[in-house]
Amino acid sequence: MKLDIIKGHGSGNDFFLVDEFTTGYSFTETERSELAKLLCNRETSLGADGVLYIMNSERADGKMRVFNADGSEASMCGNGLRLAARYLCESKGLDHAVVETMKADLKVSKYKELYPDIQTYQVEISPVLFDLKALPLNLPQPVLMNERIPQLSEELEFTAVAVPNPHLITLVDTVTLKSDTQKLLSEKVNGPNQLFPDGVNVSFVKVLQTGEIYVRTFERGVGFTNACGTAMSASSLVTCLQQLNQFETAIDVYNNGGKVKCIVHQQGKNYRIDLIGNATYLFNASVDVDFDKGAFAVLSKKDLAEQSSYNRLQSEVQEYLMANLEG
């Protein structure tokens, strides 16, 4: 099967976009999973964190489905949604759109440049759910807000939230951030365990100063990534709930892949988050996929000229983090 694909990234979190709504491509559920495992394998000539399938929707401007590198399907992906938003908006000539995802129809829009010559999109992250059944997290209580989980750590305090991907978030100091604590803890809750039967995304958050945080995330089904959009959104929410940042005010969120902005909106007891960041295309490619043999061949590949601008942003971010990610 011959496919035309685009590779892009949001904050260094990279994906292949597969267009099912204009090309007529059709896949079985097994093939979607297998294609993700094939294309995303970083031991091949391609490699990525996941595949975004862009599809028709009966109730929105388009639909996004997200498959991780291990072939599992994610309910949402904030960094991927920005790429899907760009693709749909450019394909349909829109500045604003609504994208159907597994759990919700989300508003997206083109946004003023986060940095010169960087395509920037704002996407809605919701619903926000604190009910532990939504993750799920097996504890004898309804929610977990800045509390210890003795089975995981005697020192760290966690907040559990689904947006709608499940997240376990803790605020840490630099010493903890530089230790192997996050790796060991994340591998524990994403292997066979009683607490998180479906696994969970684990984020360690360091507050740099008011209005600025650093987030590092271990994603279930992926491992450590340059950035996770829903994790950065959920982490911003947690800092607002702990009165370290303000609702309705943009928060600069730094990550190993770059930088985004998050605005946390509070509406009574309900919350939603705007995630604002890059949607950068890396290359177009044509591939020939043989599902029976579990293999593919790259027929052609054309690099695009967008990454150089993002490299400048990333360089500034790394310099900033080196100077400020201490203490």
Rank of each mutant, 00 (worst) to 15 (best):
V215G: 09
K302P: 04
T210R: 14
A279P: 08
L275R: 05
A234D: 11
Q246M: 09
K261S: 09
H265C: 02
I273A: 09
D252Q: 14
G268V: 02
V238Q: 12
Y281K: 12
C228K: 05
Q266E: 13
Q318R: 14
V215A: 07
Y214G: 05
S309Q: 03
E306D: 09
I263R: 13
A231N: 04
S286D: 01
L304R: 05
T225A: 13
S300Q: 04
I276G: 10
A234K: 12
V287M: 02
N311D: 15
G229P: 07
Y254M: 06
F247V: 03
F218M: 10
E316P: 04
T210K: 15
I251A: 11
V298Y: 00
N278V: 05
D303S: 10
F218S: 08
I273D: 08
G268R: 02
A305W: 02
A231F: 10
G277H: 05
G221H: 06
Q242R: 14
Q314G: 08
E212K: 15
E248P: 02
L313Q: 06
A279G: 11
R216F: 12
V298T: 02
N278C: 14
A234R: 08
Y281L: 15
D292K: 00
L282F: 14
A305D: 15
K301S: 01
F283N: 02
Y281P: 03
A234N: 07
Q266C: 04
G277L: 06
L299M: 08
Q307H: 12
G268A: 04
A250W: 14
Q267S: 13
V238F: 12
S233F: 09
A231V: 07
E219S: 13
L275A: 10
A227M: 07
T249P: 10
Y310M: 10
L313G: 04
A250D: 10
S236I: 02
G294Q: 01
D274G: 02
A295Q: 09
N245R: 04
F291C: 00
E219M: 13
C228P: 13
N311I: 06
I276M: 07
T239A: 07
V238D: 12
F283T: 01
F296E: 01
A285T: 04
Q318T: 05
N284L: 01
C262Q: 03
Q243C: 05
Y281H: 12
R220K: 13
L241M: 14
Y310Q: 11
G258S: 04
Y310C: 04
T280Y: 12
D303A: 09
A234H: 10
G223F: 09
G257E: 07
T239W: 08
I273T: 08
Q242N: 14
Q266A: 12
